[in-house]
Design a protein around this nucleic acid. Structure first.
Lengths: 151, 151
DNA sequence: AAATATACTACTAATTTAATAGGAATTAAA
DNA sequence: TTTAATTCCTATTAAATTAGTAGTATATTT
């Protein structure tokens, strides 16, 4: 499981992506309310994303946050990583949270390691091809689908 | 990430799978030593696996644990589940640890939910086709490969 | 100057997971 | 029949992680 932190980050960035074209920025409070995220917690998350170079901020009254890249270029895997969320199922196959198995004498001979690498690759493949723009597109499609169903 | 508990379970079962043909059984202490797992912790894990119907046990002196199914029939996904490890990256897409998103008004319209379902399916696909027997086979292949390299 | 933001960092609370403790029940063998 | 070796069971503690909060400094607009 990825931490809530990472999930909140994705939600917040999706929010910002929706106003990207209009070059608007949103305040923490606005995003927090819109997405039901605890305000102060969101604050620390956005700060982390800013330090990670994914969003920019403007201080002072009428300040707020905005994306510094096109929604097409921000993919889920990098958001998860920027917020400290591991994608792999075991530390010994994690790119960013790697830890040696104390029990495995030779990692490269471990069958479990081998399988878990495959799982990681499959997950990263999906998460790295899905951008904020894709996420929004998906939601449009889902909405259309559900509207057709209702007819 | 899956809990250590699940990883230990897989290691222990792999151990048992290796002696399955000879119809031998192994004591907790033996497995614990072989796999570098804290003995008392392993005890609770094996108990859980027994209650889950994956292994059998024999009490008393010369007692121990053994697989009740063929190593071909025990797959990684069921071991992980039997030991309480979630495979999905978010609670809202977990089959066994499902929890509703408090923030999502309509789960079926959420783009993130949609993507995470795909990730889950991809992971489960791999973990459900890999059995203990496969794991052992993989290790043989890895060993052969590394021996060829050394030449 | 007042109001409204972000910046920063330290702290607390809550939850989960890992590991241990300790004795009861069971079995085999001395 | 006693002893040693083992599983069975459940409660508890310890450790680590994550979630969330507090409070103050700094910047910007009106």
């Amino acid at each position: 499981m990825i931490p809530k932190r990472s999930k909140y980050a994705i939600q917040a960035l999706k929010c910002l992506a929706k106003v990207y074209r209009e070059k608007k920025h949103l305040s923490i409070a606005t995003i927090a309310e819109e997405e039901n995220i605890p305000r102060k917690f969101l604050e620390t998350i956005l700060l982390q994303l800013r330090n990670g170079g994914m969003v920019g901020s403007k201080m002072g009254a009428t300040g707020g946050y905005f994306l510094v890249k096109h929604p097409d270029e921000i993919v889920l895997s990098s958001i998860i990583r920027a917020t400290g969320g591991p994608i792999a199922l075991l530390p010994c196959v994690s790119l960013n949270f790697y830890e040696e198995c104390t029990e495995c004498p030779h990692e490269e001979l471990c069958g479990l390691h081998d399988v878990m690498l495959e799982v990681r690759e499959a997950s990263i493949h999906i998460l790295s091809k899905t951008s904020l723009a894709d996420l929004i597109l998906r939601e449009k499609k889902l909405l259309r689908k559900s509207e057709n169903k209702r007819k």
